[in-house]
Design a protein around this nucleic acid. Structure first.
Lengths: 107, 107
DNA sequence: TACATTATATCGCTTCTCCGATATATTCAA
DNA sequence: TTGAATATATCGGAGAAGCGATATAATGTA
């Protein structure tokens, strides 16, 4: 039953992350500026969530287009890298989300 | 900007309800036993969320099959009605969800 | 040198979700 | 009497989301 509880919790957690991947990406980027590949690593290693390039990159592009992050082209040891920083708009969006959740669940 | 904020909040709220409609149904049923048509009314009037029969009824059936609610056939003034009650399993599921959200968002 | 890692990005197919339309039945109200 | 409201339920098509496969490029390692 305990392992069943864990499975349910895992499942719910996965659902939550999937449904609001954009928000959770923004929250990670709020901690520190990050790039696509690193974000995929963190999601996989910290949350056990496998998000591949076809999902992640269009989503990052969308977030940039909506002004929630700013993408900076950087060169690291000869490799290109696009590092994303959170904008105020992105930060406000996350705060709004937390508010909505708190309200909706009475937390 | 204020109305923009409201729109963002509304949008996020809608996303939340959509993504976790099963949970929010369970929470409504936790308040009191309810039936399909009434649930649709509440979602529409209280949350501005339009959920039609094709979404709601299969979802209620699924919740029943998973043992989270129990459906009781009732006759009300000559009409059939299927009233759903929350089971302990359903209640536990909701609690687990709240826990997961709290954890994930540090609320 | 060949393969793995780091890194960005897209395409097309499959699966899932949502929605319009619909069916049926009983009661209520104009 | 007719149409609306209350109530349950499903089907099939459209759109959205997810995933496998892929491409490209530079660096690192065995």
């Amino acid at each position: 039953m305990l392992s069943d509880d864990c499975n349910i919790g895992d499942d719910l957690r996965r659902r939550l992350y999937r449904a609001f991947l954009d928000i959770f990406l923004l929250r990670l980027i709020d901690e520190e500026p990050l790039w696509g590949y690193r974000l995929m690593e963190i999601l996989r290693d910290r949350y056990g969530l496998r998000v591949g390039p076809p999902v992640l990159y269009p989503l990052l592009s969308s977030l940039e287009r909506r002004g929630m992050v700013e993408g900076l082209d950087v060169h690291v040891g000869g490799r290109r890298r696009k590092v994303y920083q959170l904008t105020n708009r992105g930060r406000a969006y996350v705060r709004r989300f937390e508010e909505v959740v708190r309200e909706a669940l009475g937390l």
